[in-house]
Measured scan of single mutants.
Amino acid sequence: SISSRVKSKRIQLGLNQAELAQKVGTTQQSIEQLENGKTKRPRFLPELASALGVSVDWLLN
């Protein structure tokens, strides 16, 4: 799922939720909701993929 991929990649990069949120241009709460499965397809998906160094396709599939 996107939530597990985001969380595992974030941890692999040594980032906390607030640091990832800053790179993406969103809030820590938005990252938390995404990782908890409350958000399925965030509006900041391209920025998120870029910050994590992955493709949008990788996040979604």
Rank of each mutant, 00 (worst) to 15 (best):
S1N: 12
I2A: 04
I2Y: 05
I2H: 04
S4L: 12
S4T: 12
S4K: 11
R5S: 05
R5F: 07
R5K: 12
V6H: 02
K7L: 09
K7Q: 10
K7I: 10
S8K: 15
S8D: 11
K9A: 10
K9D: 01
R10W: 02
R10S: 04
I11M: 13
I11C: 10
Q12H: 09
Q12K: 08
Q12T: 09
L13T: 03
G14E: 05
G14T: 03
G14K: 08
L15K: 02
L15F: 10
N16T: 15
N16M: 07
N16V: 05
Q17D: 03
Q17F: 07
A18K: 12
A18M: 11
A18L: 13
A18N: 10
A18C: 10
E19P: 01
E19F: 04
E19V: 06
E19W: 04
E19N: 06
L20C: 03
L20T: 02
L20W: 02
A21P: 02
A21T: 01
A21F: 00
A21K: 03
Q22I: 12
Q22F: 12
Q22M: 13
Q22H: 14
Q22W: 10
K23Q: 10
K23F: 10
K23P: 00
K23S: 08
V24F: 02
V24S: 07
G25W: 03
T26L: 08
T26P: 01
T26A: 08
T26V: 15
T26K: 06
T27W: 04
T27H: 07
T27Y: 04
Q28P: 11
Q28S: 10
Q28W: 12
Q29C: 09
Q29W: 14
Q29S: 11
S30M: 15
S30L: 13
I31W: 00
I31Y: 02
E32V: 12
E32T: 08
Q33G: 08
Q33S: 15
L34R: 08
L34D: 01
L34C: 05
L34H: 01
E35C: 02
N36E: 10
N36T: 12
G37K: 05
K38G: 12
K38Q: 14
K38I: 15
T39Q: 11
T39A: 10
K40M: 12
K40R: 13
K40N: 12
R41I: 12
P42Q: 05
P42K: 04
P42H: 09
P42E: 04
P42Y: 10
P42L: 10
R43C: 11
R43S: 15
R43T: 15
F44Q: 04
F44E: 04
L45M: 08
L45S: 03
L45P: 02
P46A: 14
P46V: 14
E47F: 07
E47D: 10
E47W: 06
L48C: 02
L48K: 00
A49H: 00
A49N: 00
A49F: 01
A49W: 01
S50Q: 14
A51N: 04
A51D: 02
L52Q: 00
G53L: 07
G53V: 15
V54Y: 02
S55K: 07
V56M: 12
V56S: 06
V56H: 05
V56G: 04
D57M: 11
L59G: 01
L59Y: 02
